[in-house]
Design a protein around this nucleic acid. Structure first.
Lengths: 210, 210, 210, 210
DNA sequence: TATGAATGAGTGTTCATTCAT
DNA sequence: CATGAATGAACACTCATTCAT
């Protein structure tokens, strides 16, 4: 039951494979030396192919970085989506657990290899205005994702009924962002865990004394 | 009997003035076309001076962007410091008010001219590893600043005694960051105000239903 | 079954050819306008190629002048070595003849195209300290070459047994150098012949009256 | 009995003094970093004067190197002329002694400070065609100087009557040149002395076995 | 007269992109 | 289809020279 939607012939498959390899090599290079510090020849050399070949797979340098970004975002979304769905929980305690699970997933994604986060959050936005907008859109999309969780919580009733869902989603994502940035500066499992706990504490209890 | 402390002669004053103008012109250019998209000649042309002049005031292209960043950070710190000191408040209500004031100050700084935030947060980190580290350090410094407010609150007693001050400070700054990023994507006074309120709500009450 | 040792493919051959052409064009330019007066673009333009092409064949400007020098020295050594070997003679008369032949060879090399000598002796040493040392080494190597002739003569017995071979070799080379310099100033076959004769006269008879 | 030919007033004297200092500073710089490696600002900085001042004393960069050369040549000629006059000797033995004295004088001039010789023989000729010609003329002038000694020797009778005076003068100067060059490569009093002896040996006895 | 700020011509070098093989 | 040779636009940076103060 093959879904012959995309590649058919062996040649076609090979091509897709190389295309993928180029994207990965490009990411490696960009992560190592930055977008402007990377020459097309570097990417080709890393793969051991002629740098003319590059242009058979991608329009130009700007083109590939777009694909690298798409690739990264897809991976992040996939590994998050795989874990949890917003409507998989029914009580605040379950929600807390889910929150913790998501936190762990993010920690795994960004903690193991900081290159993705570094590239997405720090390198890419400086490439040009268009890329900057893409990254800003990504933040927005992430906020919508978080909003879905909040919305479910409000509907089910374990989250405050008067919650400004979209604004709060942004705020929560901001805390996650802070966590990622903190890791980028100097990775530390311990600090990361403390920060994660503090974020959840803020979320559930606020900061004020009772 | 002149009382000027630093630049005395008129020539000296002129020099300082031009130096400042170059920094500003550089910021304008960088904000418009990005660091890599800006040629030294562009900066000079904007001022109507020969591009050789640039090199009388700055070592090289990398040198000036450092000064531009320093300049920006100084301005931000100054405008925040001017408003509020951590120990100026004694009760939770006063603290809420101070928080709101700081929020407004940030809104003013970043809202009126998004270029500073855009450059600092999105453009600069992509310049090179050193600059990226500088910006990450800036985040850290900002967290320390926020931590000072939290610490005062804990000492005076209007904030939870068991607060993980530094982690919470990072979390709070993350929310502010989210707010700034949201403005960068699409400025909107209304959304900004809602987000600001949501952040304060999260801070003081958490998100859970009671 | 091709028998070429080094460059096999046609592309490879073409490449070697262009490389050689660049060296020659560079020499032409350097000889005409001096090293510092020559821009890479000049060299490329002389060949009718883009100046980026230059950098596919040589590291940088300093690199090519080294190759030009190597090329020149090789040519000189080759055309001298081709003529005479130190141990090809057995008597003083034969030695005199050999000396004359070498003199003529040198006259041919340097007389026909003064550019080589001019570049090697007058232009190159001023390029930088490293090149100066190379040229000084060249003088030294030439002295060793001459010393080999003297040594043979001493061994066979037609030259003075107590000859300070290396010092005398340097002295003789100095006279040759004077001859070359004299030609560089104002070429003249007649003067050149007289100088050549005078050198041989000094060598064999000294200058003192008997 | 002052011969008020040149500077009169104190201002005038000061000016001449500075002019001289600039020439010396320029020589120092040129000797250290070469002509092309020296900026006018370097020369001025070495004297602690503004580099605009330079242009009040010399037309341009090319102008001063001419004066530096003139200065060097004058010094060399002076220190040689001071020692010996061609007609101060009457016999071959006296001539040998004079030759040795001149050799020592040259050794002193060039041996103590190789910078002069290095600049004159290796650096200057590469500056431009005009300078190259000046240096070649210097060689010629030196040959004429030597020729005067030879001519006197022939007239008095202690040198071979049939000597080709001008050619032989060039040959002898070539040997001296070789000596200087040898010192430039690697100074060594011992080698210098041996070379000096070998030159005199060649001059008086030739190299052939008797 | 001395100064040094301003200038811009000049140049080495990089690299994205094209295209003939 | 893969290659890499060729290209030239682009740009950072230097420095001799001028000239207002």
């Amino acid at each position: 039951m093959t879904t012959e939607s995309a590649p058919v012939t062996r040649a076609e498959r090979k091509k897709q494979e190389l295309r993928r390899e180029i994207i990965e090599a490009a990411f490696d290079c960009f992560a190592e030396r930055g977008y402007h510090g990377t020459a097309i020849a570097d990417i080709a050399a890393r793969l051991g192919v002629g740098h003319g070949t590059f242009y058979r797979y991608f329009e130009n340098k700007r083109d590939i970085v777009d694909h690298v970004i798409t690739d990264l975002i897809d991976k992040i979304v996939a590994s998050l989506a795989a874990e949890n769905a917003p409507d998989a929980v029914g009580t605040l305690d379950e929600y807390r657990e889910q929150t913790a699970r998501i936190g762990e997933a993010l920690t795994t994604i960004f903690g193991e290899d900081t290159r993705a986060a570094r590239f997405l959050l720090l390198e890419a936005p400086g490439i040009d205005g268009q890329m900057r907008d893409r990254i800003l859109d990504f933040h927005e999309t992430a906020a919508l994702l978080t909003a879905a969780y909040l919305e479910h919580g409000v509907q089910v009733g374990y989250l405050r009924a008067d919650l400004d869902i979209h604004s709060t989603a942004r705020a929560i994502n901001g805390m996650i962002l802070a966590s990622v940035i903190s890791e980028l500066r100097a990775p530390s499992k311990a600090r990361q865990a403390r920060l994660s706990a503090a974020i959840r504490r803020v979320m559930y209890d606020g900061i004020a004394a009772r």
